[in-house]
Nucleic acid binder design. Structure first.
Lengths: 227, 227
DNA sequence: AGCCGTCTTTGCGCTGGCGCAAAGAGCGGA
DNA sequence: TCCGCTCTTTGCGCCAGCGCAAAGACGGCT
């Protein structure tokens, strides 16, 4: 059982590796092909999941067409915490990005884990509050900032949790289309494409179909900060 | 000590009234004049607060001028849950709307309350997740919907937590300006004013300086649903 | 009663960025 | 190798709604 990466996760802070193995053994591992949907928005929330390998894309839909990417969930992170509560539905859908392995935990298992490992409850509160703060900031930004600035922030956010250094450059190590970056930023496919083209000319990014490399992260950071 | 309204609060679900009194006695009551700031965004978070009377406005600022109202916190509700965690800062500022009384709890008191009353931890998780879901939806809406639709939704949201029935009409029972409604919706003072004027002509709302009455809630609901 | 500060209304011009259309490019499958 | 699908690029027109300006209304205070 692969547990690498778990110790960086805020969910399993303060939990030793042996305890961790014991926890994971209480869940059920599932393997998902790229594009497979783990759960649908609105379905009764019965299980929480921890990603072992690969990545989940959480998104919510608006009646007719428009869609927002709420978050990407990488190895060691928890998805669908809501399942610890009774009578709730999943507030978002989860789709695998690339081949992905997850462990699923039933509600009673989650409650047992919380009871056995007291720090976990606080970790869950911390996790939820961090996400809340992030959403509040994104809400402020979508109101107060220009699209290009928001695209830069989106790239930096995604980079932080899924970036792979190679020299000065940073590769976003999962396939992401213009459309998905637009859904994450709250803009359109067209605007993202135009913006990335412009940045490519400036040497800030390099990209091919579904892959984005951030060639000059510093320039992007400056861009988000200035006016 | 006034505890009315507490039993509707999700924070104190499953807690009996006698236990409640005992909990409140562990905090320190403060009285705030209208407009007084209880805590500032970015300050070290040392206390959580429960509103007894009046109302808090939580807002976050963007560098130069723009501001978003995150939420209004009414009697029985908890603000600044983040203070249960060590080393965090307040992610928003809190300002009293009208004369307001709150109880403040130090971190160690909060931790003691959680330890003494096991359901509280789950209630806090539920509370955080509910807020997260609300913010995610607002984020989706600000991207996907027209301003007028969002203004209608904002009015309905505020109405739900601070509405006072009188006949068919519903009064929002605290002073709220066009600017504040704009900050809540993510639009401008001007657009809110124009929109409310139009709705006033249609008989959907009535308003004077700082007061809003929703004369036809049903019309607003339909308006948010259609196209 | 009168003043002053704050809140509200409305006209008007401007523009960011949306979204259609259509062409081009890359990748996988047979 | 060729075909077809999906992803990307770019031109172009259009409009929602922002934001200035200026006038008007309300309410609290002396």
């Amino acid at each position: 059982m692969k547990t690498a990466g778990f110790n960086e996760s805020d969910f399993f802070l303060d939990i030793s590796t042996t305890q961790l193995d014991q926890i994971i053994r209480q869940g059920k591992v599932r393997e998902l092909k790229s594009g497979a949907v783990l759960f649908h928005q609105g379905d009764p929330a019965t299980q929480s999941f921890v990603v072992l390998e690969g990545r989940l894309k959480l998104c919510i839909l608006h009646e007719l067409g428009k869609e927002i990417v709420v978050r990407y969930i990488g190895p060691g992170e928890l998805a669908a915490m809501v399942a610890v509560l009774e009578g709730q539905n999943y507030p978002a859908s989860a789709e695998a990005v690339g081949l992905t392995r997850v462990v699923g935990f039933e509600r009673r298992t989650m409650l047992k884990i919380i009871a056995d490992h007291p720090p976990v409850a606080l970790n869950m509160i911390r996790n939820a509050l961090n996400r809340l703060e992030e959403m509040q900031n994104r809400y402020l930004e979508i109101y107060a900032e220009q699209v290009e600035q928001r695209i830069a922030r989106s790239l930096l956010r995604i980079m932080k949790q899924a970036g792979k250094r190679s020299g000065d450059e940073i590769l976003i190590d999962f396939p992401i289309t213009r459309q998905e970056l637009a859904d994450y930023t709250g803009t359109t496919l067209y605007t993202v494409s135009r913006t990335l083209s412009a940045w490519q000319k400036k040497g800030w990014v390099k990209s091919k179909r579904g892959r984005i490399i951030i060639a000059n992260p510093h320039a992007l950071v400056l861009f988000t900060e200035n006016f």
